[in-house]
Amino acid sequence: MAKLILSLDDRVIKDFEISKERMTIGRKPHNDIQIDNLAVSGEHAMIMTILNDSFLEDLGSTNGTMVNGKAVKKHFLQPDDVVEIGKYKLRYVNEKAGKVSQEEFEKTMVLRAPANPAPAAPRPAATNTQTDIRGGRPTDTQAGFQTSTVSGAGAAQSASGQAAPAAKGAADLVNTQTNAGNAQPNAANAPQSPGKNAAEVQMQSGAESGGTIQILSGPNAGRELPLSKPLTTLGKPGMQVAVIARRPQGYFITHVEGTNFPVVNGKSLDAQAQKLKDHDIIELAGVKMEFFLKG
């Protein structure tokens, strides 16, 4: 369960569990998270939650809402984001995204409407929502939506009961896309950051970055070819092609096509990938080249 930890001058005041689809933050007592301070507007901001994702929205407050030092109107909250309202800080903690058995909670589950059989469901529903959104208020198009668990008992539980909000949330937070974009700098912090980031982080931490090929013979002799992409192909299509894959463990060369296999340090490759070492000499389609690591 995600929560917000309210603090003032690095002193923790209270934890708030994100327990419902819409939680308001403000000075007035009816708010779910009340901050009784004159710098805080009566209804200052709110947090909309759709299953495991939470979105922060400023409700037109006088003094504004900041996330990680930047003023935001709407923001897709990432773990460890710090929301600032006046002098108060709210840290967003999503334990689910952290250590709690990734395996279990990532297992695919089905969302379904139990009463209406499937055919009418997703696609029309999506379009309907869109229309409703333009009208500015959520309707019941997806209200019949309920979760039903198919696997992963733990994860499943938290999903049920929160699905209906999902539909309304979708309508309420229609403009979130812009803020979501702003959130990008935090992507690296998010444990869920997409694969590419993960790989890049690993690459950067490993010693083996900056792999480069220098052509040693032929018309292009002297040219350098940085291996900046996950895959770089070398050779002449239709004749002989090899590929160098950049992986967390280093750079690997593999034969792709042609009757002749590439030669590394005088030895012909087999069908297996071979890891390249600094200053390895590669011969391919009649061209000699050297692999080296740029410091």
Binding site: N52, Q78, E106, V110, A126, I133, A180, G181, Q192
Partner: peptide
């Protein structure tokens, strides 16, 4: 569905915690 309705961009969706939910 959230992407279709404009709630999430494709990029933001990659950071969502709700990846594992299929509707059919």
């Amino acid at each position: 569905e959230q992407i279709d309705s404009g709630l999430l961009t494709k990029e933001a969706a990659r950071r969502s915690q709700n990846k594992n939910l299929v509707t059919r």
